[in-house]
């Protein structure tokens, strides 16, 4: 084959798959939202003026932000401990974090269904030790969705941050210490700034992942705690309102893409290693 064309011929099948079966369908979904006879933005006016839709949007934002914040704190502390652990312990801990990560969302959400249910394990336990006299309603609340979401994303955060923390050269903290920095100061002034880009990458993964999740809010939130993902599904497959569903899809795409773009720009700017 001709020399110049070779790289393109090799790339063509993969490019075609993405452009034909992702680019085209997604663009067509976005395009249908502007086709309203009342004007191109009529669907969006409906969306942003509807109290119910805005409740779903804000609830999704809230759940995703809380999940991200908790995952950052929990993930960072845990990753810090894992990174300092002796090699053998460290590889065991990494296995312990990878295992839930590679186990499916349905299985992991199901576990919380068993734990938080009315006759679930947590209620059984609390009744048994006598803290409560009647089972609590924990399932189908915002809290249950958030707990399961944190459970879903903490392993991802830990693994992302372990890699980042391991990449910080020992020399830097040694140098800080030899120049008289107390461990706390060295951590704040050397380690933390170097970990910021990793924290941002991890946060973006967790935020977009929880913002667009479907199975977890479906199982643990139900109708009462509808989130963008479950709302999109309900509009598309239960009420067959495809234009409405497409508008929800467009809002999801805009929120996730802006988050990714803005945060990756910030990550690049604050990266002390990038000079």
């Amino acid at each position: 084959m001709p020399r110049k064309l070779r790289p393109w011929l090799l790339s063509a099948p993969a490019l075609l798959l993405v452009l034909l079966f992702l680019g085209l369908p997604v663009l067509s979904t976005l395009a249908t939202t502007f086709g309203d006879p009342k004007g191109p933005l009529a669907q969006y006016a409906t969306f942003f003026n509807s109290r119910f839709r805005m409740t779903v949007l804000w609830r999704t934002m809230e759940v995703a932000l809380i999940t991200t914040a908790v995952s950052v704190v929990v993930g960072f502390i845990t990753a810090w401990v894992v990174a300092q652990a002796p090699a053998r312990v460290k590889s065991l801990l990494i296995i312990a974090a990878v295992f839930p990560l590679l186990t499916g969302v349905v299985v992991r959400s199901f576990a919380w269904l068993v734990i938080l249910g009315k006759n679930g394990i947590l209620n059984d336990f609390l009744l048994w030790i006598g803290v409560i006299s009647e089972p609590l309603t924990m399932l189908y609340t915002k809290g249950s969705v958030i707990v399961a979401m944190i459970y879903l994303f903490v392993p991802l955060m830990i693994l992302t941050l372990v890699g980042v923390l391991e990449g910080i050269p020992q020399d830097l903290t040694d140098a800080a210490a030899s120049l008289g920095a107390k461990p706390g100061a060295a951590f704040r002034q050397v380690v933390l700034p170097l970990a910021v880009p990793g924290l941002i990458v991890g946060s973006v993964l967790v935020f977009t992942g929880s913002f667009t999740s479907y199975a977890t809010p479906q199982l643990l939130g139900g109708e009462g705690q509808m989130m963008m993902g479950t709302f999109l599904y309900q509009r598309a497959m239960v009420t067959f309102d495809w234009v409405g569903a497409s508008t929800i899809a467009a809002v999801m795409v805009v929120v996730t893409l802006t988050t990714v773009l803005i945060m990756s720009k910030i990550a690049r700017r604050v990266n002390p290693m990038a000079g």
């Binding site: 369908p25 997604v26 979904t29 913002f211 667009t212 479907y214 999801m252």
Partner: peptide
């Protein structure tokens, strides 16, 4: 978002 891809 995967759910958008699935729907589309």
């Amino acid at each position: 978002p995967e759910i958008v891809l699935g729907f589309s």
